[in-house]
Design a protein around this nucleic acid. Sequence first.
DNA 1: TCTTGACTTAGAGTACACTCTAAGTTGTAG
DNA 2: CTACAACTTAGAGTGTACTCTAAGTCAAGA
Lengths: 132, 132
Amino acid sequence: MTQDTNLTIKQVADATGLSEHTLRYYERIGLIHPIDRANNTHRRYTEDDIGWIDFLMKLRATGMSIRDMRIYAHLQRQGDATLPQRVEMLKKLQCEVEARMSELNANLNLIRYKIQYYGEIVESRLANVSPE
Amino acid sequence: MTQDTNLTIKQVADATGLSEHTLRYYERIGLIHPIDRANNTHRRYTEDDIGWIDFLMKLRATGMSIRDMRIYAHLQRQGDATLPQRVEMLKKLQCEVEARMSELNANLNLIRYKIQYYGEIVESRLANVSPE
DNA sequence: TCTTGACTTAGAGTACACTCTAAGTTGTAG
DNA sequence: CTACAACTTAGAGTGTACTCTAAGTCAAGA
């Protein structure tokens, strides 16, 4: 009955925000290890599985590709011996995210400037409209 | 001969980093207005065109979709009367970019933490290796 | 005149990340 | 026993944003 305390695909979908389709897809392509089954057919997810999925979603949110997430997942399943490679991947990701954030920040400043500049034009046009 | 002082598609591709294919594609879908032609066939881009393309690339870098860039481009071509709508679009974009940056920042902190944590495990393992 | 290369077009093809469909199985509630 | 919901699979389909192909035009240099 240990299985029954674990979560169905629907519950995991609700908990993570991923669709059931996507959860099966991620498992099929190796982002998630083969999930244990109840009745030998229905998936039963553990809390650890949820934790891993949450981490995957964070990697994805940083812009990491499915391809790289697969590599990371594969290393992770091989255990602590692959820690150095994983640290390397994370360092590379860190650099990329830092670069993207600094680019985003520059673009954000441009957007703010345009909002300000265009806003002033609109304001001054309103001020020049003669009241009825 | 005014045309000849302007830039060929190759020069614009080199200057912007977009491919010639992409430049034609952007024009075809209305992100870029119909570019003037020399010989009535070959495109000749003005400095203003380059400026617009650079701005488009910045919008794209913020994650704005082609669909929204088309709307923005269409408004832009209609002149100052559409400034309020454009300001609205930019404000919405600003919010999205700010949200994305704060999410990226949270994920970056997690990545840094993992690098630190895994790094320490690797270090301590190295220290425990008996020297030959 | 011939060739080369830069350009043109319409439309087909690609990569990525899902997202859905169809057909079938299983387990519980009535 | 039956109906139903929840699950299963393989594989097809979708949306986005390019990216490329094929066939053709055109001007300038050998």
